[in-house]
Design a protein around this nucleic acid. Structure first.
Lengths: 223, 223
DNA sequence: GCGCACCTGACATTAGGCTGACATTTATTT
DNA sequence: AAATAAATGTCAGCCTAATGTCAGGTGCGC
């Protein structure tokens, strides 16, 4: 998931970018409207975090241009002004959400997740967890766009974990979903799949946690 | 347990509905996709039995619409086609299980039970006491959102205390719930669990009180 | 102060989990 | 059809967290 942050305040920009990076997103920063425009033309981002109050070309202008190119990238507007007209204006221009300054990082993350889920993921029929995206239609998994090769079993287990994000899943439950009621697998087999999945995902910062005595857990990405 | 059966073949529909009714489920029948949709919008079902081959709006479309409303109702797909892509497509759309026509009623019942068990019965039901929340479905405990790591024993004891909130529980009662009548634990073991639980919970303001001579007590949160 | 119930740090033991290696099955290529 | 490669599942040895017992300490209630 690539996010473009458009923010002129250096301090705020750094905090935001760092926090999003830590959560596993690939983040770029634009400090002016024009810079934002060229970056948007070039790179393919999955979302834009847009501060309205920019020197020179302001945020609304960036948004207007973006929408002219008919892209449907979700845009989250950040602004210090709160009056209703202002907000409505932004949404009419095609923004998807609106957040008031100052904001808490947790809120930023929540809104980011919601937007990505609503737009990018649902359009693509995909599941995600931080930088990890699992495209169900295309049967492909990737982290930050870099594809991950998975065998069928690994794929199934991962999808199951993603469908139960934040929940501990029992090994028996995994076995049930894997074999269509015919074979039965040893519990150890699941451990092996998890081990193999980990060897592919750990290096990308995706951690499958073990909950001793219960099963496994894929945590929702946190701030 | 309310089940919606979506099936256009009158004979098959009748058989299925009758069988499920006899088993004690409340069953409704939809004979077309559109009918299914409106029923799903209106009534709250615990499960859907979905034939894919429908006149007009097909089963996949019904499923897609259902999932768009992000409901997590379990869906069991019934189809005469068996090729893998087809099956995968359904499951990716968010179906929970897949059954080939023709099927035996026993299998239908087995899968129905399994699905209901997995979903509805395990639907997020949480126990809480003040800031402490114990999510039974996710197998996770947290205080003010901050997760608390618990071992199985600690978990079991805590759940038991929470299920008897405000009541004094005897140590013997805890022992009974812990071991299924097999092992015999010393009373001291319970004291140790409580001690360990306290060391994890006290700092978060959750206090397990000792009632000398009787057992332990988790107080209902006071105003 | 005394006795008893309870607490808790330390320890040995156990059970659960990890993973490299191998045998077997399945898919792909030639 | 044979050869090759990939995926799968089992196993065994290793490692570590969890468990349960003990023993000495604490403190409640009389």
């Amino acid at each position: 998931m690539r996010i473009l942050v458009v923010e002129d305040d250096a301090v705020l920009a750094e905090g935001t970018c760092e926090s999003l990076s830590k959560a596993g997103y690939a983040v770029d920063l634009a400090e002016t409207g024009t810079q934002a425009n060229s970056l948007l033309d070039a790179g393919n981002y999955d979302m834009v975090l847009l501060d309205i109050g920019l020197p020179g070309m302001d945020g609304f202008e960036v948004l207007r241009r973006l929408r002219k190119h008919n892209t449907s990238i979700p845009v989250l507007i950040i602004s210090a002004r709160d009056d209703v007209d202002f907000r409505i204006y932004g949404l009419d221009l095609g923004a998807d959400d609106f957040m008031l300054k100052p904001f808490v990082l947790a809120e930023l993350h929540a809104r980011t997740r919601a937007l990505l889920r609503r737009h990018v993921l649902s359009e693509r029929n995909a599941l995600s967890c931080g930088a990890l995206v699992v495209d169900l239609a295309a049967q492909r998994a990737s982290v930050n766009g870099e594809p991950i090769e998975l065998s069928i079993r690994e794929w199934d287990v991962l999808v199951y974990l993603l469908r139960n994000l934040g929940k501990v899943v029992r090994k028996e439950a995994i076995i049930e979903t894997l074999c269509d009621w015919k074979t039965d697998l040893s519990v150890n087999a699941i451990e092996v799949y998890i081990s193999r999945l980990r060897s592919k995902l750990d290096s990308h910062g995706i951690n499958i946690r073990t909950v001793r005595g219960f099963g496994y857990l894929l945590d929702e990405p946190s701030a």
